[in-house]
């Protein structure tokens, strides 16, 4: 059985299973179900932030911190699929080359394949395979996000939002949504002008946010460099993640339940969408309904309801 090999840590079998999950092969879902009892030991960390904030470089640096502590690290990096060609260029590995021959590191790139929110539909599944394989830390890197891509929060135990100095007075790019999911805020490229200002702005914005108080979100400055220049603050980022983990310890059950709820809801939505697609295909697609709407014979709501009724 392939899952036995996966549990033994066989890289090729695990990689093929991830591929099948990403391609949504039905039998792979069955295998994932069998793996599920073996998950729950890896600590999942989400890294998100603006395009160009240095997410991949920070991930590379964090891998080094964890490897120095003899922890095994799995990484899932997500890049966008082109809505025009359906293809994608997955380039996050470029920044993680110093770990390329380390058997304690498994890096997997995924394309969004049309999913919104900064992750692919398969991201959680791929992370679960890494978890079942016994990786101690699992880092999920989202696509470069704008202002409300917050899916990573539902997948990760600790969400790290990375930004850089100089993005504007109010740190335009991390408005409400993205700021609210942060458990740890990182100002990367802190040797640039305006780093202290960025930290101050983040403090003020956290002050304004409701719910979780400012004292519960650490703001960390760092300089991640791929090891080509001296780094700074990376250990502080890792420490902030650990202390968030410690603080969450008391409410771990509640967090797990929230995550499970979000995950189930996501799966239900996905499965319903699949069924709707299949039904539409069986009925010959949307052309007939669309013609009716264009000719004014039917409104789009009635058309949609007629599809729903036949599910």
């Amino acid at each position: 059985m392939r899952i036995d090999k996966v549990l033994e840590g066989d890289i090729r079998s695990a990689a093929r299973l991830m591929r099948d999950l990403d391609d949504r092969v039905p039998s792979a879902i069955e295998e994932l179900k069998a793996l599920y009892p073996h998950t729950g030991n890896g600590y999942i960390i989400g890294i998100t932030g603006n395009p160009g904030a240095g997410k991949s470089t920070l991930v590379d640096s964090l891998i080094s911190v964890y490897r120095n502590a003899s922890l095994r690290v799995g990484v899932v990096c997500v890049d966008p699929t082109s809505p025009f060609s359906g293809g994608a260029i997955l380039g996050d590995r470029i920044r993680m080359q110093r770990h390329a021959s380390d058997s304690g590191v498994f890096i997997r790139s995924l394309a969004t394949r049309g999913q919104l929110g900064g992750l692919s539909r398969s991201t959680f599944d791929v992370a679960s395979v890494l978890d079942a394989m016994g990786f101690d830390r699992i880092i999920i890197e989202t696509v470069g996000v704008g202002q409300d891509e917050i899916e990573v929060m539902k997948t990760a135990y600790t969400s790290v939002v990375v930004t850089v100095p100089g993005l504007g007075d109010d740190i335009q790019a991390i408005k409400a949504g993205i700021l609210e999911i942060a458990d740890v805020l990182v100002v990367n490229k802190a040797d640039r002008e305006g780093a202290d200002r960025a930290v101050r702005d983040l403090f003020h914005m956290l002050d304004l946010r409701g719910g979780v108080g400012r004292q519960e979100v650490e703001i960390v400055k760092c300089i991640a460099t791929l090891g080509t220049r001296e780094e700074s603050g990376i250990a502080d980022v890792a420490k902030a993640i650990d202390s968030h983990r410690g603080r969450m310890g008391q409410q771990e059950d509640a967090r797990r339940k929230e995550r499970a709820k979000a995950h189930i809801a996501e799966l239900v939505r996905g499965m319903l969408a699949d069924r709707a697609d299949a039904t539409l295909r069986a009925q010959g697609g949307l052309d007939g309904l669309a013609d009716g709407v264009v000719r004014g014979e039917q409104d789009p709501y009635t058309a949609a309801e007629s599809v729903l009724k036949s599910l």
């Binding site: 699929t81 060609s85 293809g87 994608a88 260029i89 380039g91 470029i94 080359q97 390329a100 394309a111």
Partner: peptide, 17 residues
């Protein structure tokens, strides 16, 4: 880029491999 435009998923790993 050309392979991505043809609809494939391309993993690119950079120089000096």
């Amino acid at each position: 880029r050309a392979l991505a435009d043809a609809g494939h998923e391309v993993v690119y790993t950079g120089l000096h491999q």
